[in-house]
Computed example of a mutant assay.
Amino acid sequence: MEGRRVTASPEPGSLPRARQGAEPQRLLTTLLGDYWFWRQEHIPSAALVRLLEEFGITETSARAALRRVASRGLLVSSRNGRTTAYGLPPRASDVIVAHMRRLLTFGATTPRWDGQWTVVTFSVPEDQRDTRRALRDGLRLLHFGMIFDAVWVSPHDKTDDVVELVRRLGVRGAVVFRARKVADDDLDPVLDRAFDTAALRERYLRFIDAHRPVAERLAMAGPCPTEALRLRTAIMTDWRAFPTLDPDLPAELLPAGWPREEARQLCVQIYDSLGEPAERRFREILAEYDPELAGLAAHHTFAQASALESPATRRHTSFDETTDRDRLDLLAGGGLAG
């Protein structure tokens, strides 16, 4: 096996911790990603508040969500007379496109395995508890699982991502290497300790149980635009948790009857079929405040979003993309039981 000892960079960066965004903020980012991606025009704040009211969010909570998202640099505001409007900064637009591709392509294929693990070991002094916690959070975002307190593993080759993470945090003495498990052929103890596949399976099954009745209803009759917007947003809000929760284990490591494919097919069916009526409702609400802007709204299918390419030229590592998704509140965060 080949290992790499990682030393701290002179000016390490900091890692933002994953967090569970408030419901209005998650709804807002989902709606903008679904109907306003890659647009630079600003939407009147009253229209955004009205959109959130479709989901039972009060005006006070909606305006608070706008302020919080803007305070984190994920929206920028402008004024025209007495009207305040919000839009996506150029960098955020590029990241949203990259995130959309990740979100809507996730689960389309199952990776193959070369039989090797990426292993990370580290020792962080007790007086650097915040750094140790940030390192663990970063490893979780990279879908590593913990087999011992300071030994984390992934079946994917994420050596470069971990090296960057460790350097940005200023952790000294961490080691990352690729290795095979050679003691015996039974991988169940490793999987049970590192990845709670039972809880993840239950999460997928709950997703299927919650949304299958919607698919059955759609097979009989289409919903009105108002209901279409609610149903389409609901299933995408639920689906977007899985790229964070699911470590995307190779086929060789998955239990029999893994339900992700069924869940994804259900999501594609509902999300794509509701696109046109949901877009119509989004436009109707926006037209109450700015008819010209309403004409710019557009929906996308799974296949269309998967084909999008961001104009950004900077190369993103997996760690960069994970951090950006967290900054945009597009990570669901929280535990599997949530």
Rank of each mutant, 00 (worst) to 15 (best):
D186W: 11
A183Q: 13
S93Q: 09
G73D: 15
V176D: 07
H143A: 09
V162D: 07
A150P: 01
F144R: 04
V176H: 06
L200F: 09
F177M: 13
W152F: 10
R68K: 14
A64S: 14
K158A: 08
G170D: 03
L141Q: 06
R91A: 11
T118P: 08
H99A: 08
V163E: 07
T58P: 10
H99S: 10
D94W: 10
R140N: 14
L75G: 05
T109K: 15
E126Y: 12
R102G: 03
R112T: 10
L135K: 04
R172N: 15
F195M: 00
K181W: 08
T84K: 14
V171P: 00
T118R: 13
P89Q: 11
R193W: 10
A174Y: 05
D184T: 14
R201T: 15
T159D: 01
G115N: 03
I57A: 03
E164K: 05
D94P: 06
A98G: 05
D127M: 10
W113F: 10
R91S: 08
F148S: 11
D130Y: 05
L191W: 00
R172K: 05
D149V: 13
F122N: 02
D184P: 02
L187I: 08
T118S: 13
V182R: 15
D149I: 09
R67V: 02
D157H: 13
L135D: 13
V97D: 04
R112L: 11
F148L: 11
L103Y: 10
P189N: 06
G107N: 02
S77K: 12
A85Q: 06
R101C: 00
E164F: 03
P90F: 07
D196Y: 07
T118C: 15
F195P: 04
V162G: 02
R82V: 06
V69S: 02
D184F: 09
D160E: 12
A150M: 10
P155C: 03
R140S: 13
F148G: 07
G173D: 04
R102S: 11
R79L: 14
R79M: 14
L141W: 05
E59W: 13
D192G: 09
D94N: 11
F144I: 00
A199S: 09
V163P: 05
G173E: 03
V151T: 09
W117Y: 04
A85S: 15
W117N: 01
S61V: 11
Q116R: 15
R91H: 11
V153N: 06
S78V: 12
Q116K: 15
L139C: 04
A64T: 14
L135V: 03
R201F: 15
G138I: 13
T131C: 07
D130K: 08
A64G: 07
D188R: 11
R140K: 09
R101G: 03
D130G: 09
P90W: 03
K181P: 01
L191D: 01
T159S: 15
F106D: 01
R79H: 09
R72N: 07
R133M: 03
F177E: 10
A150K: 02
V69K: 07
D160R: 15
G73H: 05
V171G: 00
A98K: 09
G138Q: 12
R79P: 09
T60D: 10
L135Q: 07
F195S: 01
V175K: 12
V151E: 10
T159F: 06
T110Q: 08
V162C: 06
L88H: 01
